[in-house]
């Protein structure tokens, strides 16, 4: 068994999980909303990209560009018309509504696209790899990891260098005071969910390129995303990347020992971190 290879693959897989997790982390950070439909929305994004690919004959990467504004609109509308109505002190209504959305999206996909597994056509890039002597690195996993780093860089830039980011942080700290300063929290929430859906689209692109998917795979993606967020510590996007890498590493090492242990190993790593550092490795937010 090539341990270096296993570790490199694990780290790169972590990039995919960090992409799953960034949208979840963003929404939670700003409005304390845990979207139980997050995984199913990733799968919905993958189907949307697939639809655009097959309708317009585009490459998946171009199709994802087309899907980005559509998914932004979906997120914006979802927040504005549904989720904003249930946000409040009580955590129960938003949880139950997003859980309902999860069930609806899953079964709508099942009805519309059948339970058959699908895959985005990756073309040459799907099999291309870089030979670095000791390890072969797939171009696609590398691209995934690079995209995760890129997304986090952009998000951090938006958060700490732009007016929109200032509005996000202000609303996150204290929505009431922010609204006194001329910020409309509800509009900010809608924009945040829209942006989260754009990250979801990027995550969906790599999900579909790297592995086959079907309507039922969403909940597991939500769980990986959640584990990455908790391991990293709430409010820290680089922590989320680290969390994704830890889950990815645990899964590939687990799978290298026994293929049946892949998923379990990821969960065990999460529980170990929860046991040792309940607030995550790099906590920033205090809630």
């Amino acid at each position: 068994m090539n341990w270096i290879d296993t570790i490199v693959q694990g780290v790169l897989l972590g990039g995919l999980y960090a992409l799953f997790a960034s949208g979840l982390s963003l929404v939670f950070g700003i409005m304390r909303l845990v979207n139980l439909a997050h995984g199913d929305l990733i799968v919905l994004g993958a189907y949307l990209i697939l639809l655009i690919v097959s309708l317009l004959g585009l490459s998946p990467f171009v199709a994802a560009m087309v899907a980005l504004p559509l998914m932004f609109a979906l997120g914006y509308g979802l927040q504005k018309f549904v989720l904003n109505r249930v946000l409040g002190e009580d955590i129960l209504p938003p949880l139950l509504v997003t859980f309902g959305i999860s069930i609806v999206v899953q079964n709508a996909l099942l009805q519309g696209a059948s339970a058959d597994t699908q895959r985005l056509p990756a073309g040459d890039i799907g099999v291309a790899s870089l030979n670095l002597g000791i390890v072969n690195i797939g171009v696609l996993p590398l691209l995934t990891f690079g995209s995760a780093v890129g997304v986090i860089l952009i998000l951090n830039h938006v958060f700490y260098r732009t007016a929109l980011g200032r509005a996000f942080r202000a609303t996150s700290d204290d929505a009431t005071t922010a609204s006194l300063m001329g910020i409309r929290p509800r509009a900010v929430f809608a924009q945040a969910t829209g942006i989260a859906m754009m990250i979801v689209t990027i995550a969906a692109l790599y999900l579909g390129l790297r592995a086959s998917f079907d309507p039922a795979v969403g909940p597991a993606r939500l769980i990986y995303a959640f584990e990455a967020v908790i391991i990293g510590g709430l409010g820290s996007l680089w922590g989320t990347l680290a969390g994704g890498v830890i889950i990815g590493l645990a899964q590939t090492i687990g799978a290298a020992i026994n293929p049946e242990w892949q998923i379990l190993a990821g969960h065990v790593a999460f529980l170990l971190v929860l046991l040792v550092k309940p607030r995550g490795l790099f906590p920033r937010a205090f809630d």
Partner: peptide, 18 residues
């Protein structure tokens, strides 16, 4: 109706919550 059933259940659940 299979998947429709769960969709209806989900929509009713969301509707009740809202």
């Amino acid at each position: 109706y299979g998947a429709w059933y769960l969709m209806v259940l989900g929509v009713i659940g969301i509707g009740v919550m809202l």
